[in-house]
Simulated assay, not measured.
Amino acid sequence: MRIGELSRRTGCSVRSIRYYEEQGLLSPIRDTNGYREYSPFAVEQVRTIQFYLSLGLTTAQIASFLHCVLTNKESFCKEVLPVYQQKLAEIDLQIATLQRIKVNLEDRIQAYKLETNTAAPQAE
């Protein structure tokens, strides 16, 4: 199948499919005319790539275990666990950072409200 058909079947843009190819995640065959020819299995590959991207993984991280996942069940791929653990640690750090920012903003809002209320002229 050609790239346009793969795009239609997966809902993935042609540009993204080309990017996946550049990153080594897809390997189409080139026809004599230079057109990319994808196997029917490429539909599953693209959907799998999109799934892992939706988890926040990078294409480099996905490349480290994609072949294993596509040929086996995810639970049989020992390469997946460290990537998941690293991503979870990154998310925990982001949550902690956002929590600190939230508390800081709440404190500033409270201080602003207190300052505004005490600075307001008293009606007689």
Rank of each mutant, 00 (worst) to 15 (best):
M1W: 10
G4V: 08
E5R: 12
E5D: 14
E5G: 12
L6V: 05
L6I: 06
R8W: 05
R8S: 13
R9K: 12
R9P: 01
T10N: 04
V14R: 10
R15F: 03
I17V: 08
R18W: 05
R18T: 05
Y20H: 02
E22W: 04
E22M: 08
L25Q: 01
L26Q: 04
L26D: 04
S27N: 12
R30T: 06
R30W: 09
R30I: 07
T32Q: 14
N33Q: 00
Y35Q: 14
E37R: 13
Y38D: 04
Y38G: 03
Y38A: 02
A42H: 01
V43C: 04
V43Y: 02
E44I: 07
Q45N: 06
V46G: 00
V46R: 00
R47M: 09
Q50A: 10
F51L: 14
Y52S: 01
L53S: 00
L53V: 00
L53P: 01
L53M: 01
S54C: 00
L55G: 03
L55M: 13
G56Y: 03
T59F: 01
T59W: 03
T59R: 02
T59G: 03
A60C: 05
A60I: 05
A60H: 04
A60S: 09
I62G: 02
A63M: 08
A63D: 13
S64A: 13
S64N: 05
F65H: 03
F65V: 06
H67G: 05
H67C: 04
H67W: 07
C68F: 07
L70A: 03
T71N: 11
N72W: 09
N72P: 03
E74S: 15
S75M: 09
S75I: 10
F76L: 12
F76P: 02
F76E: 13
E79L: 13
L81I: 14
L81Q: 13
P82V: 07
P82F: 06
P82Y: 04
P82T: 09
P82L: 05
Y84K: 13
Y84H: 11
Q85I: 12
Q85E: 15
Q86P: 02
Q86F: 11
K87P: 06
L88W: 13
A89S: 07
I91V: 15
I91G: 10
D92N: 09
D92V: 03
D92P: 00
L93K: 15
L93P: 01
Q94W: 01
I95R: 08
I95F: 02
A96T: 09
T97N: 06
L98K: 15
L98G: 12
L98D: 12
Q99A: 14
Q99C: 06
R100M: 05
I101D: 10
K102L: 10
K102I: 06
V103Y: 09
L105Y: 09
I109M: 12
Q110H: 13
A111R: 14
A111F: 11
Y112I: 03
Y112M: 06
K113V: 10
L114I: 08
L114R: 15
L114Q: 15
L114D: 14
E115A: 13
N117Q: 11
T118K: 14
A119P: 09
P121D: 07
P121Q: 07
P121M: 06
E124I: 11
E124F: 10
